[in-house]
């Protein structure tokens, strides 16, 4: 079980209707992507973080560490967007490379900073979903949204099996490395190759065993599971509505931040 999942099952928003949480996150995400105002990004980031820490009860230190997780992607991609290669040296900071100059411009920096802040605010929204809603509850909502049954079954099966397989993989890894299986590079490749091919065999065997087990209990290709009964709360729906109106109002008078879908930036 991943750490994110432990919180998904134990946070204080666990028994809020999953459809409310999913709607809140998706609507906020789409809003974030559509606006281009830095103040909205910061506002969303702060509010969602406060909700996660204050209402859902996620420890601050853990949450901050989570926010730092995508930093590697942000730094690399942000740097790529900020860097410009031109033949006309008109830059804030630059290194000349023969005919061309590598450097940063004010506009480039601004675009990069905006993209990174936006991504950070969106990641906070993603964490809101990941930390408050277990996958099992989410699939129940997807079923209502008419996602094909086969996909939902595969989703559930993959989810259930992955924890089993992950456990097996970790055990194999520990026993291999305690026998010096990863002491040199060629040996690591060989050990990991053994691990993966054995894991494949294990999954194959497990699938067969499960088929036998299920068939002997009348399995016909359909899974019927009891779902936890959730109740939509009027108060939450109104709050989400107010939140979206507030976001819209914040974006409106600023100009340039209207809900326009633009290809490019």
């Amino acid at each position: 079980m991943s750490v994110l999942e432990q919180y998904a099952y134990s946070n204080r928003l666990r028994y809020v209707h999953p459809a409310e949480k999913i709607f809140f996150v998706l609507a906020t995400l789409i809003f974030l992507l559509a606006t281009s105002q830095i103040k909205i990004y910061i506002f969303v980031l702060v509010v969602v973080s406060v909700l996660l820490i204050g209402v859902a009860g996620i420890p601050v230190a853990f949450y901050l560490r989570l926010l730092l997780l995508p930093l590697s992607f942000l730094i690399t991609s942000g740097a790529v967007i900020a860097l410009t290669v031109t033949a006309t040296p008109d830059l804030l900071l630059s290194i000349s490379l023969g005919r061309f100059t590598l450097g940063v411009t004010r506009e480039g920096l601004l675009v990069a900073a905006k993209a990174c802040l936006k991504a950070l605010a969106s990641v906070a929204c993603l964490y809101f979903l990941a930390l408050t809603t277990p996958i099992v509850d989410g699939t129940a909502v997807l079923r209502r949204l008419r996602v094909p049954g086969l996909v939902l079954d595969l989703l559930t099966l993959t989810y259930r099996f992955s924890s089993v397989l992950l456990d097996t993989a970790i055990k194999m890894y520990i026993s291999q490395s305690s026998r010096l299986g990863y002491s040199s590079l060629p040996r690591s490749f060989r050990s990991l190759g053994y691990l993966i091919s054995n894991l494949f065999l294990k999954s194959y065997e497990q699938a067969k065993m499960l088929n036998i087990t299920l068939s002997s209990r009348g399995y016909q290709g359909e899974f019927r599971v009891l779902e936890h009964p959730f109740h939509l709360s009027k108060r939450n729906l109104i709050l989400i509505g107010l939140w979206l109106i507030l976001l819209g109002a914040l974006a409106w008078p600023g100009g340039g931040g209207k809900l326009v879908v633009r290809i490019g930036y």
Partner: peptide, 27 residues
Amino acid sequence: VSGQPGLKLLLGFAGAFTFVLSALKLP
């Protein structure tokens, strides 16, 4: 999958296998 319910389980394991693969560390 139709007519072969066992295949669905196999596919589920294939998905889990791919997921676990992406969680492993390359040498």
